[in-house]
Design a protein around this nucleic acid. Sequence first.
DNA 1: GCCAACGTTGGC
DNA 2: GCCAACGTTGGC
Length: 166
Amino acid sequence: MAKPAPQRRYWLFKSEPEVYSFSDLLAERGRRTSWNGVRNYQARNLLRDEIAVGDGVLFYHSSTDPLAVVGTCRVVRAGYPDETAFDRGSPYYDEGSDRAAPRWFTVDIEAVCAFPEPVTRARMQAEPALAGMMLLRRGSRLSVQPVTAAEWRAVLRLAGVREEDA
DNA sequence: GCCAACGTTGGC
DNA sequence: GCCAACGTTGGC
């Protein structure tokens, strides 16, 4: 008997567009990138242990105007050691991480859907279905966050995007 | 620019 | 292990 397929899960990745925008992702070969440089243990644990190939990712622009979810991605490679932590020339270098015992992890994502219009934070705050969303909690700083299936669907609805296109 | 929230560091 | 000090994040 075949194993049941694991439930697809959903996440939200934050990025300052000045540093790395959704447009930058769309311009990558294969619209793919390694989500490296995350240096927070809680986020690291999600990247290393929880995020699976096929999971959906909301791409959020932080510290900008307007604050918004601008598109979706899918995970194309699950957690593996973040090479930038070993690279002395990288701004993300961490001498406490080595290949024998990597401290930081990354996943690869691929852009799936650029929203026709960004779903702004203001719009999300006005949406009852998103009342409990981690992103909207005061002081929420985690750059890799879990998103519920209901929140995922609500954001797609606000974006005017069909689930099968995201 | 302000400041609340949160994470990390380090003395004890 | 506690906790004060400090640094960073990120919305406002």
